[in-house]
């Protein structure tokens, strides 16, 4: 479970996140939407402390992240994160990209980690790519490898930050399908996305952010079909126009 209490984040004197309160239950799939610059990335980066809140608390399974010090690594091992620009390790093969974290953190022995990686690659339909370097992959393949790299740690929570935004349109589907499959396994997921159709279809709950605030939070159907706040309405009318 993720619980966020009175979270504020400033960059310099810019107030980026304004008093955020939020609770996400195990197994929930959250779609996080909102205009660019509204603080979506900053919010999910606070959930694994890549960004340190200026004030307020983030709890993962009742552990207050701000009190952890170096123990934060242990918590991060349970929270996968997938980025818009993949950030695969270019000097490692696909297989090494996936086995590195389990081996370095002592979670799995090398042979076990490789077995697990091969399994993941099989489910991603990328087994034939195991020995190549990331730069020879397409964007969609890179993003699926990035997801596999996170899953190799057996995380309880997965954070997705606009993971299809940098992809050519024809590759969006293959990545969304992997995420859809993951959602159906009961994974807790927070998905920052511009893919409204995907949010509507997969998310249990959709949160609309604007200007550093959570403006509205509701079931996907309610939020899309019956938005309450004027800012939500304006945003949806803009993105759903096409």
């Amino acid at each position: 479970m993720i619980r966020i209490e009175n979270l504020n984040k400033y960059f310099g004197d810019k107030h980026i996140l304004k008093d955020i309160n939020l609770e996400i239950k195990d197994g929930e799939v959250i779609g996080l939407i909102g205009p660019s610059g509204s603080g979506k990335s900053t919010l999910i980066r606070c959930m694994n402390f890549l960004e340190i809140p200026t004030s307020g608390n983030v709890y993962i399974d009742e552990k207050d992240l701000s009190t952890l010090g170096n123990e934060i690594d242990k918590v991060r091992q349970q929270i996968g994160m997938v980025f818009q620009h993949f950030h695969l390790f270019p000097h490692k093969t696909v297989l090494e990209n996936i086995t590195l974290a389990p081996v370095l953190t002592g979670k799995l022995a090398k042979t076990q980690a490789e077995e697990k990686a091969l399994e993941l690659l099989k489910t991603m339909d990328l087994l034939d790519k195991k020995d190549v370097y990331p730069n020879s992959l397409s964007g969609g393949q890179k993003q699926r490898i990035a997801i596999a790299r996170s899953l190799a740690m057996d995380p309880k929570i997965m954070l997705f930050d606009e993971v299809t935004s940098a992809l050519d349109p024809e590759m969006v589907g293959e990545v969304l399908n992997v995420m859809k499959g993951l959602a159906s396994t009961g994974m807790t997921m927070i998905v920052v996305t511009h893919e409204m159709a995907f949010a509507k279809q997969v998310a249990d709950r959709v949160i609309f952010m604007s200007d550093g605030e959570i403006v509205e939070s509701n079931t996907a159907v309610e939020l899309f079909e019956n938005p309450q706040n004027i800012r939500t309405k304006e945003f949806l009318s803009k993105v759903l126009e096409y």
């Binding site: 690594d73 918590v75 991060r76 994160m81 980025f83 590195l100 996170s150």
Partner: peptide, 17 residues
């Protein structure tokens, strides 16, 4: 790229490693 550090840290790998 800063993203390399972030991707690694997000996996729970220590700063030193």
């Amino acid at each position: 790229d800063k993203g390399q550090m972030e991707a690694s840290r997000s996996l729970g790998i220590s700063e030193r490693q």
